Simulated assay, not measured.
Amino acid sequence: MADVSTAEETSADHLFPIDETPARRVHSLLHRYPALSPMLVLVLACLVFGFANSRFIQPTNLSIILQQAAVVGALAVGQTLIILTAGIDLSVGAIMVLSSLVMAKLVSDGGLPGIVALLVGFAVAVVAALLNGLLVTKINLPPFIVTLGTLSIFTAATLIYAQGMTISLTPGGVLTWTGRDISLGGFHLTVGVLMMLALYALSAYALRQTAWGKHLYATGDDVEAARLAGIRTNRVLLSAYVVAGAVFGIAAWILVGRINGADPNAGLNANLESITAVVIGGTSLFGGRGAVVGSLIGALIVQVFDNGLALAGMDPNYQVLAVGLLVIAAVAADQWIRSVKS
């Protein structure tokens, strides 16, 4: 016992105690809870815009913000899974639009039942994401280059398939069900919003409570260390793309319900908007750190700034400027956390 006591007293922690400065405490808190800082930004923004214009905090306006965030918020779930592996997907919007057009056109032109069209469009999204995953894992191409190339491929396929035409659907069908209005007190939400929230709940559970989620974090943090620990990293990476593809298929369904049809020009900025939501939400572009709920907060922050600045009568250009500054601030914060940690 005496030897153990002596060993404890002469440990490195006793010889070189860590100075718990305020910066270290803040770093430790932010590293443990990545969604904390964007949550503070969201609350502060809501308070400021609420004081600036009382219309901002009215249930009708808050409902609009949630509805506007539904599509990008859903895409951000899949984007989060990929960025957690230290990858990135520039083709998410193109996959969603292609999938939505397949769904709508099979019903409108092909006369197929809505449920069949939905499943086919869902399969298209999964196969497209699977292609990205195979190129990354089997040929070892960088995710940025792969998805930059497939962005053009999927966009071209969408335009060729749609022949430059938009498709309108009759409300009340399976595909437009996600656009159905639901009243919750003073709030008017849609089924699509609730589906988006369900996606976040399921993905948060999978990432935090399952072996797959832990392997995903480990692979993104250090792929070689994860491989040496016995994790089949390529399988984990491929599964992340496949699951993300399934999420993009659901996002396509939400999009069809929101616009009551399909448009080849819809979601032109969805690729970058999903990345913006994930980055502002505290997920590290270097992989291995972040929480999926942060992406929801990030998507809401973007919509809150757009809505709040519009109500304040600001020039739309300043709305874009505000989002750009938020992205830079989020990346800078991530770099600071990593540098202090080291």
Rank of each mutant, 00 (worst) to 15 (best):
L90R: 15
S99V: 10
K214Y: 07
P34Q: 14
G114D: 02
A74L: 00
L15R: 14
V71Q: 08
I301M: 06
V48P: 01
L30T: 09
R258M: 11
L207C: 10
A246V: 08
G87D: 12
A76M: 07
G294Q: 04
L135H: 11
V71K: 03
V41F: 07
G185V: 04
D306N: 09
F286T: 13
A198E: 02
I167G: 10
S108N: 02
V102N: 11
T219D: 12
L194H: 09
G281I: 08
L175W: 02
I95L: 10
D3F: 14
G78Y: 10
V127W: 09
G185S: 04
V327S: 12
A198Q: 01
T80I: 11
Q303K: 02
A204I: 07
N317C: 02
A2L: 15
G164K: 13
A225Q: 10
V92I: 13
L134Q: 07
G282M: 08
A330H: 09
F16H: 05
I297R: 06
A211E: 03
Y33M: 03
G172T: 08
Q79I: 01
I275V: 13
P113S: 11
I280M: 04
M165H: 07
V136D: 04
G73P: 06
Y161K: 11
V102K: 07
T178I: 04
H31A: 13
L106P: 01
G282A: 07
V92D: 10
G288T: 01
A266L: 04
A94H: 04
I280W: 03
L285E: 12
L98T: 01
A123Y: 02
L30Q: 09
L255R: 02
Q319I: 15
G186W: 08
S28E: 11
R289I: 01
